[in-house]
Amino acid sequence: MTDQPLLVADSLRLNFGETKALDDASLHIWPGEIVALMGPSGSGKSTLLHCLAGILQPESGRVSYDGRDLTAMSDSERSALRRGEFGFVFQFGQLVPELTCVENVALPLRLSGAGRREAHRTATDWLERLEVGDVGAKRPGQVSGGQGQRVAVARALVSRPRVVFADEPTGALDSLNGELVMKLFIAAARDTGAAVVLVTHEARVAAYSDREAVVRDGRVREQEYAR
């Protein structure tokens, strides 16, 4: 482990109208660690995740990634960073319905210039690793919820990001499928050395993390972040 956090949120504030979604929120993510963001619904978990990932801009405060100030970058610099270094898994709806599952997983590689055959071979490997090697030719609408989430995890990891952001990745699944997704997701993330920011309100899902940070009223109670 290095002695620098990979991703830092420093005193973020963001309001939606009257709502203080983030109210002096700070968080540190170290390389390769799995951090669960917990807390009641509406406490600001998703907003914090979106700010960390450069999807939302805080009104004040700073987000830095690998020493670079994300909040000071141009939109195009930020999207380049997202494509190159970050992966995403959401609760549902993130797969492109017109593409087959293997095409979905290959998409990030194709967008960064990989040839079709090579991208498909790598994508197929990832599907197998997530134990959904048999659904490659199907479209997302033809697979189960648990299979679809494993395809989404494969797509998030295929370009070997340094951080994966996952917002309630098992929120739409029953507990057996949720467990399987978490087990394969976290094992794969650990293999590739990716850090994971995992938003969940389920303790059994959070138990796959290395530590938790609790979000309450737009603030973070972070325990034991220092190494």
């Binding site: 917990m38 087990k183 303790a203 059994r204 959070a206 138990a207 993390s209 290395d210 309450r216 325990q223």
Partner: peptide, 24 residues
Amino acid sequence: ANEVLDAQRAEHLRLMRELTRRKN
């Protein structure tokens, strides 16, 4: 009182992590 609850949550999660590792 929030601190009491948070400390307990951390303790519970610590054990849950251990059980999750053991199970997997």
